[in-house]
Computed example of a mutant assay.
Amino acid sequence: MSSESGNSTGQVVDLTAVRARRQRQPRTVILRAANLRADAEVHRHIGVNDGLHLADLHDVLVIAFGLEEHRGSAPWHFSTHEDRNERLDAADELHHHLAEEGDSIVYHFGLWDIIITAVESYLRDDGTPRALCVGGSGAFGDTEFDLAAINAELTGTATIRDVLAATAPAVRRLIDRSGIFDFVPLLQALDLTREVDLPRDVADVLAEIPLETAPPARDAFWTVVLALACMGDELLSDHVLETTMSALGWEDDDGTPLSGGRIRQLCARSLDRLSDLGAYGADALSPVDRLDIYRELLRA
C-alpha cells in the first residue's frame, strides 16, 4: 500500500551530526571547581567523562563538596559564566560547554555558586573512571576535604592493584610503607598508561631524577611530586608533604616533625631540575603541560 507524499509527515535527519556523534572519541576533562568567598576559598579538581550530562556533574559536585544532606531540598542549575541568568539544559553533555582549556560555567546550588573551569582534556580508555576527584583544598561548610572518602563514594570500588601496577616502583613502595592509599585515586585519574609525548631532552632529565641518594631525601622528592600532581595550593601541598613524611617515619634533626619547607629543602637539587623544565616554581608551565611531566615521573 502506498500513500500520497502530501499526506505523510517526514523528518529530516542530519546525517553529518549523526556521524559526528558516532565518531567522537570520549575524553576525560579535568575540571577545577571553585567556591570563592570573602573569607575563604574552596577548590576541588575533578576528572570526568566529558560525555556525562550536566545532571551527572551535579551529582559529582554534590559528593565532592559534601552537599548530600541538602540534596533534594536546595534548588540547583548551571549557567553560563558570562550571564548567570542564562540557564543551561541539564541534559547537555559536558563537552558542549567544557571542551577547551579555560572554558567555564557556573554551578548554582541553593545560595552557593561554584565556578567550573576546564583545565585539561585528553582521550579516555576503558579503564578510566567516569568521575574521580584528583585534588582539592578547603572545607566547605562543616565538611572537611577528604579525598579518599570522596572517591570511595564516586567510584564505589577500589582498583588499587591495577593502578599501582602502572606506577613507578619507588612510588609504589612509598605508598605501601606510608599506608597512605589516598594517592591511588590521584594516580588513577592521572591515567599513567596514557602515552606522553615529551621532548627527548625533557625525558632525559626526568629519567635522572631524583638526584639525591639519601633515603629521606628521595622520599621527600617523590612526596613533593605527588603533592604537585594534586594541583592544590601551598596549604594543601604542605599538608600532603608533612603527613606523608611523618607516616614514613622521617623527622627533623632535632626530633620535630618535618615542615613543608624543610621537606622541599631535602630534595632541592631535584626540584631545581624540575623548575628548569617548568614543572615547579613561580615560572611553571600550564597545568596541562605540568601534568604530562608528572605522569612521566610517576609511571612505571
Rank of each mutant, 00 (worst) to 15 (best):
L54R: 06
P199I: 07
A17K: 08
G278H: 04
D39A: 13
E208D: 11
N49Q: 00
T9H: 11
D176A: 12
T128N: 12
L94G: 01
R84W: 09
F78K: 13
E234V: 12
V134Q: 13
R264E: 06
I46G: 02
I46R: 02
L132D: 12
A227L: 09
R22T: 06
G141S: 00
A34T: 15
S2V: 10
M245K: 09
R173T: 14
T193A: 15
L198H: 07
Q23A: 13
D146V: 04
R130L: 15
R22M: 11
S259P: 00
E101V: 15
R44Y: 07
V62E: 06
V225I: 15
D176G: 01
P287K: 04
T80G: 15
R32E: 12
P75W: 09
A217H: 03
L88A: 11
Q23D: 14
R218V: 15
L241N: 06
D233N: 12
T167K: 00
P215T: 00
A34I: 14
S286F: 01
M245Y: 07
R273W: 02
G110T: 09
D59K: 14
N35K: 14
G138E: 01
E212V: 03
M231Q: 15
P257V: 08
R262I: 01
A170L: 04
A38T: 13
S178Q: 03
H70T: 12
D276Y: 06
D182T: 12
D191N: 11
Y294Q: 06
A227R: 03
T28I: 13
R194F: 04
T213Y: 02
L164Y: 03
R200G: 09
L54G: 05
N35G: 11
L111M: 10
G136S: 03
A152D: 15
I116S: 01
A74P: 06
E93S: 10
S3H: 11
R172E: 07
A64H: 07
G135T: 03
G10L: 13
A279S: 05
W76H: 15
S121H: 06
R264T: 04
L147R: 08
E120L: 09
I105S: 10
A284H: 07
F181C: 01
F140Q: 02
V224P: 02
A300H: 15
A17V: 05
D113A: 13
L123E: 14
A148K: 13
V240F: 13
V48H: 01
I209L: 09
L258T: 06
V18N: 00
N151V: 02
L111W: 10
